[in-house]
Amino acid sequence: MNDDQHILPTIEVTRRTVIETGTTALLLGALPHVSVAADAAQGGPCPISAELRVNGHPHKLVLDPRTTLLDALREHLGFTGTKKGCDHGQCGACTVLVEGRRINSCLTLAVMHDGQSVTTIEGLASGEDLHPMQAAFIEYDGFQCGYCTSGQICSAVGMLTESRGGAPSYVTADLTRPAVELSDDEIRERMSGNICRCAAYPNIVAAIKEAAGKMT
């Protein structure tokens, strides 16, 4: 309490004075910037250089080593198509492809991927031609708000590669086959790391089946 009294502005700005003066400059400007810090630039972690090859193009970055791959893409390189939904690997909205494999970009630091290639949602189409997965998502209405969509699409592309390479899932009955047949159950199981709160799930499954057929 004493602490508060010490810090409170010397001019007591009341709601009444604000109304009377009719300005906000007084309100916002009269208060002391007690906690405005000096521009201290000492003591932080040393920046680290890294080169990311994003959608085929090299990008040299000097990064705070705490920067996630997700924030490097969004905040440093402007690839805002990749979304931050939870920053904890719980929702899948940030899914991108690193060296062709899907990954939650929020759970990995950018500098760990020095020299690697990253494919984001911006890199899937060829010019004006949408990737078959993107086209199928539009046709089957595999999204509503669009915020999980980049992650769903990148995840689906990565998932097709995994299943065609024979990687089994929890619901795979026959582990000896070289490639897994993508039943509805296989798709649902393998896509369960990508939450869609608008719940386009049946449409996403339909879109993935359609795209998988076109990508053979």
Binding site: G81, T82, E122, A125, I138
Partner: peptide, 8 residues
């Protein structure tokens, strides 16, 4: 739709 599936 196109904006949403391309990250735009």
């Amino acid at each position: 739709g196109r904006l949403k599936v391309t990250g735009g």
